[in-house]
Simulated scan of single mutants.
Amino acid sequence: MNEAELLDPPLETPPRPAVKIRGEPLAELPQDLYIPPDALEVFLEAFEGPLDLLLYLIRKQNLDVLDIPMAALTQQYMAYVEAARATRLELAAEYLLMAAVLIDIKSRMLLPRREQADEPGEADDPRAELVRRLLEYEQMKRAGQQLDALPQAGRDFDTVSVFLPAAAKRLPSVHAEELAAAWLAILSRAKNRTHHRIGRQELSIREHMSRILKRLTPGEFMEFKELFPEASTVHELVVTFLAVLELSKETLLDVTQAEPFAPIYVKLHESAAE
């Protein structure tokens, strides 16, 4: 390295950013690459309408929406409209209509106000209708932003569907107190229809168990009191009740009830039905 290079070393060329097209690095731009003149235009502000633009200008300049300086606001609005037209942006008709409304309000404010003899305390304000529309639009815009901030399905969370097979309805079990109350009701009914008779009667619990099983149809319910015929004696009722308890104990008979204080039903158990 000579003395000139030591005193004035050459500047290092910074490396160019790596650009790859189809996996191959590209060091230089192609000669035939065409870039449209409007491809790099960027719009910093996007408005949803003329009211949105007016509200933005008012809040940006920290103006009082109830006392709008129409001259300054109209000048700023027209500057935006002219800038948009200069960039060949197709303006909607509502923007041009709002420009005409602002100019009309500005010109009406320059005129001397009329004195009303009937109502001297009230005067017509050309800005009243515009202020009302701006306040309503701002209220609706805030409500929309609050709704957008809420969690939304597909954006903030995903929904999941789970298939649950239909479970068989399980009837509530019968308490001993309710079964005893049903038995006492049957016993009291039998006492009212009996007469005094002296005799000896041999009754078999197993025989009554077989009769009950024969009376029941597999898969169908029978009301508890139908197992006790009205013409039965007290002894027969007692043996029949003992037979029901024995069948329930051996899981050959199901005793169910839909709800408290509802009628009690009996049904053959699945094992007995088979």
Rank of each mutant, 00 (worst) to 15 (best):
L63Y: 04
A153M: 07
Y137Q: 02
V42N: 07
H208S: 02
A83D: 14
E48W: 04
V19S: 06
R88N: 14
E82W: 03
S210Q: 06
A185M: 12
R200G: 03
L33R: 01
D148V: 01
I205P: 00
V101Q: 10
F224V: 14
A273R: 05
T159A: 10
S248P: 01
I264F: 00
L216Y: 09
M1R: 08
L63T: 01
R16S: 12
Y34P: 00
A262N: 04
A181S: 03
W183D: 06
R114P: 10
E230N: 08
D104V: 08
D158Y: 05
A149E: 06
L150Y: 03
D118Q: 13
L135F: 00
P36R: 10
L253H: 02
Q31F: 00
S248Q: 13
H196V: 13
R22F: 12
I198D: 15
G49T: 08
A83C: 11
S248G: 07
P263L: 01
I212K: 07
L26N: 04
T233L: 11
A18M: 13
W183C: 05
R197D: 15
V238R: 04
L242V: 02
A153R: 13
P30D: 07
E122L: 15
A167L: 05
I105V: 14
D158K: 03
P50Q: 01
A46W: 04
A99I: 01
T240V: 02
M109R: 14
Y265A: 04
P69W: 07
A93I: 13
Q145P: 03
G199C: 07
L184E: 09
P9E: 15
S107A: 15
Y34W: 12
V42F: 13
